[in-house]
Amino acid sequence: MTLRKWFHLFWTTLVLGIVVSTGVGLILQFSDKEFSVMGLSAVGFNLINMILGGATISVLSQMGFFAYLIVRFIAVGIIRSKTVWDLLQLAVVIVVLFDLVYLRKTNFNSSESLLGYFILPVCVLVISLAVSYWKVKMTNRNAFIPTLFFMTAVTVLEAVPALKLDNTASSLFMLAPLFVCNAWQILTLHKILDKKKS
């Protein structure tokens, strides 16, 4: 990866994060009068905060992406068997999706039924499966499990600050740009590295 390619990935991800968070933020602002960024409800001031928030979320997404690439590089060097590595990633995906239901239900002690806590993990799984399928179409079938792992485990880990609030608007405001930025990075990685479809 050259510096020029890294700059392209950085700036395109930054712009995507800003655009998506601003769009989602404005929709939330006008549909939910209680929604405010940093406790302030003025639309003009919130617009600036949405832009800054989107930039921050996109940088968080990029840090998560490069951390994942480093961990994957080290893990593949330690765990020589591709099957074991894939099974380990699938196990982590299952644990993350289970924890999205169990830990949130036990931490918030709300009167909401358990079924309501399944909505977020199902959405995360469906989006992750769609991005993984798309990645396979663009590259090869070996990319499915790593993409699924990145889109579920890493995205949920990056979204922990919003998930701690048990607030749908906060979760949506953070998860939407994270999903878009993470999907953009994982789907363009093979183009940046000039990996041809085999």
Rank of each mutant, 00 (worst) to 15 (best):
A91G: 15
P121G: 06
V126N: 04
A153I: 02
V101H: 04
V101E: 05
A183E: 02
V43R: 10
V43G: 03
L125Y: 07
A183C: 09
D194G: 05
K195G: 00
F108I: 03
L178K: 05
K135Q: 07
F179G: 00
L100E: 06
A67C: 11
L3Q: 03
Q29P: 00
W85K: 11
C181T: 13
V93T: 09
R104P: 02
I127L: 14
F65V: 04
N49M: 14
D32G: 00
A176G: 03
F73R: 15
M50H: 06
F30A: 11
Q89P: 02
D99E: 10
L189G: 00
L87E: 03
K197P: 04
A162Q: 08
L14G: 08
L114G: 05
I79C: 02
V136L: 00
E158T: 14
L172P: 00
I57W: 07
A130E: 04
M151T: 07
Q62A: 12
I145H: 01
P121A: 03
G53A: 11
L163P: 00
Q185M: 15
R4W: 06
I119F: 06
A169E: 13
A159Q: 02
V84D: 06
V136S: 05
F144E: 01
L9M: 10
T152P: 02
W11N: 07
A183N: 03
W134N: 03
G77R: 14
R80L: 12
S31T: 15
L178F: 09
T83M: 07
I94N: 02
V20F: 07
M138H: 06
K164P: 00
V24F: 07
S198C: 08
G77N: 15
N49R: 11
L88W: 08
